[in-house]
Design a protein around this nucleic acid. Structure first.
Lengths: 293, 293
DNA sequence: GCAAAATCACGCGTTTTCGCATGCATAGCA
DNA sequence: TGCTATGCATGCGAAAACGCGTGATTTTGC
């Protein structure tokens, strides 16, 4: 009746993913192995944990209970790994950060360069995604985020304040400036599907022309002259083929933070990365706001 | 960097036992396996977890932290196993009880007989020990205990009230009855090293002659006529070569309980065992008290 | 309605893990 | 000082676990 902890972990993954392949992928083993471990767990528990269906493994109620306990075990594992990460004083090994894709080229790239030169023994892994990765689960050690605050459970440091403004292709910008009362076409983000508030009274006629779900595509559309765009200053300024138009005067926007789990925050590598980040933030402040230094 | 849960468990056991053999015994594997798993854990963690000394493995501070987290995982495992035990509706498989040695022959033996005949598919395991086993860790499913209450975390059912009285060998008993004012020698238990309170005024002269740390040995000494003994009625009555003497009139003593963890309490097997236990308790009540039914 | 993709079961050869036996070092003890 | 207990390291053969390939079935997408 000696149950094997890794079998419990396997059951947990199979309950989560519902297919052998999915669980196997998460565990970095062959899916046959998942099937075998689950069979073994079922036999030592004397309980059927999954219904084998054509489209996957359907967990029974008992399997869900097993998984909930395995989840607590997993939490302890992550607690441990974060502790070890936080206690690490080595400036070597791997270090993982995550940032929104669009922050990489304009802001983060020089930071990465500096950091790598200062700490050549650290293998830096960059996860460029708009998804909010779970730092509690160590999906990344530090995250660069655009938000109003670091969140409840995380520690954070505000790197930069930033502003947004309206941008357009040079030709469209010219046209708008010379015909301020004509109808102005906007390209907007799906999550904010209206013309931004705060447009200048000098440009009274605004309407939404396109709604996109992807910022890169929106920038492309703006470059092609399809409309006016509200984006953070740094983004409009560093995108070729766009220039600022006075339709929407610069206005404050969410700040740029570096956030991390308190456990990991103290690690030598995290400290080192923040140092480079802070130094570079001071240097590049003027890209993010319209105010003089 | 995929750490193996069973390696964490192995580290926990090695921190607890400090020797490969001890940990191996607890894990029911060869000690070589413990050594190998610990080496593997050290290598994936990049940390030395133990100092190899001549008399065993000395855990480092980091190992203790690892062990504390593994302990939480272990707690979840026990929580799960108790849940599964409690949800079990089969009247087959193994079932483990514990009871003080001295309760076995006089009280429990017929219960075991009845239970086995009623449920021949259940393999009953009996741990006869005075140690208080940890039911939270499933060292036993149910425990028969002599105490005033079941304890904080456990569920309990009072099976029998009982009384104690004084016993002696027939020859000594005769002598005491015919010479009540002579000095009476007592054999007492280490934990209560004085002459029991409540002796009858008819026998005014009492002293402690021997102190023992073992009840079986005390019974033997009493059988040999070395002195008077205070024991529960059932014990004196069922021990050959002893008879009750009126030095200490029957007086209430701690009750006999069956206790169990709330999670396990509801299992079919536990219910079945309690049934037999209750039935037999009613029958045998007269052995435990001096009062008429 | 049919092709492509996804899923699982099973069998085979390989890799890894494990247990056992041996040898060595140290501590406790007479 | 020698003897014995206990505990660890290492090497070898057995056992277990694993990955891969094949085949069957079902779902998904066009």
């Amino acid at each position: 009746m000696a149950l094997i902890w890794d079998d419990l972990r396997t059951v947990l993954m199979l309950v989560r993913h519902q297919t052998l392949a999915g669980a196997a992928n998460a565990l970095e083993v062959n899916y046959t192995t998942v099937a075998r471990r689950v069979r073994r767990a079922e036999s030592t528990l004397g309980q059927i944990l999954f219904e084998r269906l054509a489209d996957g493994y359907q967990p029974t109620e008992i399997a869900k209970v097993v998984a909930s306990h395995a989840e607590k075990m997993e939490t302890s594992e992550f607690d441990l790994r974060r502790y070890l990460q936080g206690a690490d004083t080595e400036l070597s090994g791997t270090f993982t950060i995550t940032a929104p894709q669009l922050l990489i080229s304009s802001f983060l790239a020089p930071v990465l360069d500096d950091f790598d030169q200062a700490h050549p023994n650290i293998e830096l892994r960059v996860l460029a995604t708009n998804d909010i990765l779970d730092l509690t689960r160590l999906e990344a050690d530090l995250a660069i985020r655009i938000s109003r605050n670091p969140g409840d459970t995380l520690k954070g440091l505000r790197l930069l304040e930033q502003e947004t403004a309206s941008f357009a292709s040079p030709r469209l910008a010219d046209h708008i400036r010379s015909h301020p009362t004509e109808m102005i076409d906007w390209i907007v983000y799906d999550a904010f599907p209206n013309v931004p508030k705060g447009t200048s009274p000098m440009f009274p006629n605004n309407r939404v022309r396109f709604r996109f779900d992807d910022m890169v595509a929106m920038l492309g559309a703006a470059q092609a002259g399809l409309g006016v765009l509200r984006v953070p200053l740094f983004l409009g300024r560093t995108t070729s083929g766009l220039e600022i138009v006075p339709v929407l005067p610069p206005q404050p926007y969410s700040d740029i933070w570096v956030v991390g789990h308190p456990d990991v925050w103290t690690s030598k590598k995290a400290q080192a990365f923040r140092e480079v980040l802070i130094a570079h933030s001071k240097w590049s402040r003027s890209i993010f706001t319209s105010q003089a230094d």
